[in-house]
Structures are given as structure tokens and as C-alpha cells.
Nucleic acid binder design. Structure first.
Lengths: 203, 203
DNA sequence: GTCTATACGAAGATAGAC
DNA sequence: GTCTATCTTCGTATAGAC
């Protein structure tokens, strides 16, 4: 079974392939990531691809997308361990900033890469949609103590959308500035704009 | 020369290829868009590809990215013809909503597709960065009468990043809800959160 | 589970005729 | 400017041995 976080040293060949696929997807996109690339990057044996992924590339990409979704969710959960939403969103943005800098702006978000695929890989696109939904839910739940349930949801979508968008802009412009600017605005919104609310809302 | 908006009926073969490349990029991404696809979609003659684009696919993709950047900028300029920023951003988001619905969530943003490409197509990535910068500048300039120059810039980045991010989420989830939620939040911010400012700021 | 070999198609790019 | 033909490389996928 795929672990929540794959350890490159101890993982099975299958999990190493999933991890490598996610890494390569975020750098090159889905279409440009070939089996040969994954084999080389993961060190997994050639002959075991169709043993572990009988449905071929589509299955590997979908698994990598689901893994990347869980990986990012784990980072989000870690960031949300503050009860101040503004700090949590800052920490989440900082994770992306660090990744961009460490990769010299070569790595983006693998889930976004999967979301952009055409009709050739519907499974990966659906997996991307699920991942986004999960992240939205995590942020919304963290915001619910501070505002209405409805507003928590729309704010959560703003947080996810703007950070993902900023990561793309940062990559294209080879600068962390877009991410910093978005984080600034989000911090301001989450710090100042949430009216105190009673704990439970009428539905 | 490439027109600001290419007319499919009257355009030259070269411009039709650029337009088709942009259309296909937003559906399938860069890597999955082949010359054969572009030829078929544009109706341009096979033999003229390397006549018009001596540097091959990289050159075509870069041209398509620049064209898409200008096309979207034109839509943004049209939306900004209100002096109420909240209405302008709403209109811009509505353009994307309409495009997603008309394409049955098959079409995203070609500039984003170019931005996600790896090191194989550095020209397209740079063109994407330029396009984002241009959009940021357009929005920022429209916001400057209403707030400080610095805040106008960060808000502009939030607007572009969140709408682009929401388009991706909408595609993956096959729903316009993310875009509506983001537009709601942006409207609230731009309507209520901008303190009245004097026209010019000390630097 | 993993190997090699290979089938099969499609990609980008080039050459040379018209 | 546009055509056809072709080169070369690389992709996914399969077959069958070990």
C-alpha cells in the first residue's frame, strides 16, 4: 500500500515509481514524463512497470496525483497546527516558496500538472479535483471557528486558488514575489476581515 | 505580423497556426499538442510549418503564448472599462466562467499551460511570465486611484493568481463553483477593504 | 517479479521537387 | 510557399524467457 509519505530509501519499487512520477510531473508536466524517465529517476526495474501498473501510464499518473494530493494535504495539516489562520496560511505559502527556491523554480505543483491534462488522462484530472477538494475542506474547517460556514468555504477556495496561482506565476517569472504578495494579502484578509462569530450558525 | 486578435476567417496561414496552437494548448497542454494537431485544426498546409517557424515547435508555442497573453489582456482591458474595480474583476471572472462552460470544462488558460512546461521550452515559459506581468500591471493601474501604489500591486497579484488558480480548480472539478467563490471574495475585498486614499503617494 | 527483445505508432525535423 | 517523402528518435505497450 502507498504510504502517506513515501521514503525514498525504504520504499518498494512501486512506491518509488509513484514518488518519482510526482517529482517529474511537477517539473515537466504529465505528457513529458515518460516511463523511461520514471525508471531512471526511481531506479526501479524496467520489467516491473506493467506488473505494478497493469493499466500503464494512466494508472501511474493517477496514483502519483493522489499521492501528491495527500503529500500536500499533510503539509497543509502541519501548517494548520496554529489556531491563527493567518499564520497557518503563511506557513503553507512558505512551504511553496522554499520548494521553488530549492528547485531554482523548476518545480511546481504536480496536482496542477495533472489538472491541466486533456481528455487523455481523465483519471488524473479527477484525482486532481479530489485533491483540491480535500485541501479546500481542510482550510475551511480551520476557518469555521472564526466566521460563518459559508464564508469559511469561499475563503478556503480563495486561499487554495491564489496560492496555486501564485506558484505558477512565480515559476514563470522565476521570482518568489508573486507568492509573497499573495501571502501578504491573504494574511491581511484573515487577520482583519473576519467578524467575530458565535460558534454555531443557523443553517 | 500577428494581429492583436486573430480572425480565423481572414488570417494568414501563420496566424491561423498560432491561433490553433493556443486553442489546443489550453485543452491539452503544450507537450500533447503536435504539429499534426495544429495543421489539422488550422487547415494550414503541412509544408509551410518550417517556412513560418524555422525554429520549429518551440517557436510556434512561444508565439501562441504571446498571442494568448495579448488576447487575455484585451479581455482584461475590456473588463476594466468600469471605474469600479469590483465590477471589473467580476466581468473578468465571468469571461473565464463562460469559456469553461462553453468548452464543457475542456479548455483552460494557454498561458498557464506554457508556464508549466519544463526546461525544454524556456521561451514559452518566459512568454508566460511576461503575460502574467502585463495582466498584473493592468489591474494594478486600475486599482491605483483607490489605494496606495504598493497595495494596488499586491492586490493585482492576488486577483490574477486567484482567478487563474480557480480556473484550474474549476477544470479539475468540472464545476464553476471555485471561480464563483473566488469572485465573491475578490468582490468583497475590492468593494469594502480599500481605504480611501489621496491621489498621489509619497514614495 | 524482473528481464530482454520487440512491435507499433507518432513525434519533430529535413531534403528536394514543384 | 507548399508539397511529398523520409530520417531518426522516442513513446507506450506486449511477449515470452528466467
Amino acid at each position: 500500500m502507498t504510504a502517506v509519505i513515501i521514503n525514498r530509501m525504504t520504499a518498494s519499487a512501486r512506491d518509488r515509481m509513484i514518488l518519482s512520477a510526482a517529482v517529474l510531473m511537477r517539473q515537466q508536466g504529465v505528457e513529458a514524463t515518460s516511463f523511461s524517465d520514471v525508471i531512471e529517476h526511481s531506479g526501479a526495474p524496467r520489467g516491473s512497470i506493467y506488473h505494478h501498473f497493469p493499466n500503464g501510464k494512466a494508472q501511474l499518473i493517477e496514483a502519483a496525483t493522489r499521492y501528491a494530493g495527500e503529500f500536500t494535504a499533510a503539509g497543509l495539516i502541519a501548517a494548520l497546527r496554529t489556531d491563527k489562520p493567518a499564520d497557518a496560511v503563511d506557513a503553507f505559502a512558505a512551504q511553496w516558496t522554499s520548494m521553488l527556491e530549492q528547485s531554482n523554480f523548476d518545480a511546481g505543483c504536480p496536482v496542477v500538472a495533472a489538472a491541466l491534462e486533456g481528455e487523455r488522462t481523465p483519471g488524473a484530472r479527477a484525482a486532481a479535483g479530489d485533491a483540491f477538494g480535500r485541501w479546500q475542506h481542510l482550510v475551511a474547517r480551520a476557518l469555521e471557528p472564526h466566521t460563518t460556514r459559508w464564508r469559511a468555504r469561499t475563503l478556503a477556495t480563495l486561499v487554495i486558488a491564489s496560492i496555486e496561482g501564485a506558484v505558477i506565476m512565480a515559476r514563470a517569472q522565476r521570482s518568489t514575489v508573486p507568492l509573497e504578495e499573495v501571502a501578504n494579502e491573504l494574511r491581511r484578509i484573515l487577520r482583519g476581515d473576519l467578524p467575530p462569530q458565535p460558534a454555531s450558525q443557523p443553517q
